[in-house]
């Protein structure tokens, strides 16, 4: 079955002030693909989708965003700072000895960071456990961001299967697909989730209305995957299926 998710009439692009915050982390004014590949997704989540309150970062009913691809935290740091989780001045000395912000984030040091990550393939299994623990107890959603190359790690396969079998409707996996996987994904990434019972959507990173709609969408009793192509040219066909 293929459905079309309703698209908002207008959707935000990432404001320049947030891009400036990313630049404070990456240390230059130039466009840095590794820092920016996740920016559209993370900004859209925090600006349009997640129910989080920087004044209450430990609210038990908050939505959880898990950055599994922990080697690219600049955009997440910038968005959290823009939303007021911590002072923007923290962005100026990332990875110094006295900074709570490192090249891989540590949940115990940073308000708003839900998991410590950096070693690949840990976020999705943690997200599955988190979704299992929250399901039926709070309306919170769990959204985990992974990279297409990160999916190489076999731990993800285990987690995709468990989430599907347990029908975790409160779980969303966002795969930021910048086609960096060395061996590729014959047949595509979304189909691997769909086979395990996930509701799958494929969108382009710059198609803001569809990206927002896909990230907002949940399906009862089924986890959701949103594969976000960061390289697709405008006009490329995208599809959503459930």
């Amino acid at each position: 079955m293929t459905t079309t998710a309703p698209a908002p009439a207008s959707a935000p692009t990432v404001p320049q002030r947030v891009r400036d915050l990313v630049a404070r982390v990456t240390g230059d004014e130039k466009h840095d693909p590794s820092a920016h590949s996740t920016l559209d997704v993370v900004w859209t989540l925090y600006d349009q989708v997640l129910r989080v309150d920087p004044g209450h970062p430990d609210d038990p009913d908050r939505d959880r965003f898990l950055l599994s691809k922990g080697h690219g935290p600049a955009s997440t740091y910038a968005v959290l700072a823009a939303k007021g989780f911590f002072p923007a001045t923290w962005l100026d000395d990332v990875a110094s000895f006295d900074s709570p912000l490192g090249h891989h984030p540590d949940r115990t040091l940073v308000p708003g960071i839900e998991i410590g990550s950096g070693s690949l393939g840990h976020g999705l299994p943690l997200a599955v456990g988190l979704a299992l623990g929250l399901r039926g107890r709070t309306p919170a959603r769990v959204v985990v961001l992974v990279g297409d190359a990160e999916l190489d790690e076999g731990s993800n396969a285990e987690a995709i299967q468990v989430a599907g079998r347990y029908g975790l409707g409160n779980l969303t996996c966002v795969v930021v697909d910048n086609h960096s996987d060395n061996l590729g994904w014959p047949g595509g990434i979304a189909s691997r989730f769909a086979l395990e019972g996930w509701a799958a959507a494929e969108v382009r990173t710059h198609d803001q209305p569809r990206l927002t709609a896909a990230l907002r969408r949940t399906v009862p009793d089924r986890p959701t995957v949103v594969v976000v192509d960061t390289t697709a040219k405008p006009g490329t066909t995208v599809k959503e299926s459930a």
Partner: peptide
């Protein structure tokens, strides 16, 4: 997944 899920449950 056994340990990862346990970690997630504890986070919840």
């Amino acid at each position: 997944a056994l340990i990862g899920v346990a970690g997630g449950l504890a986070l919840a």
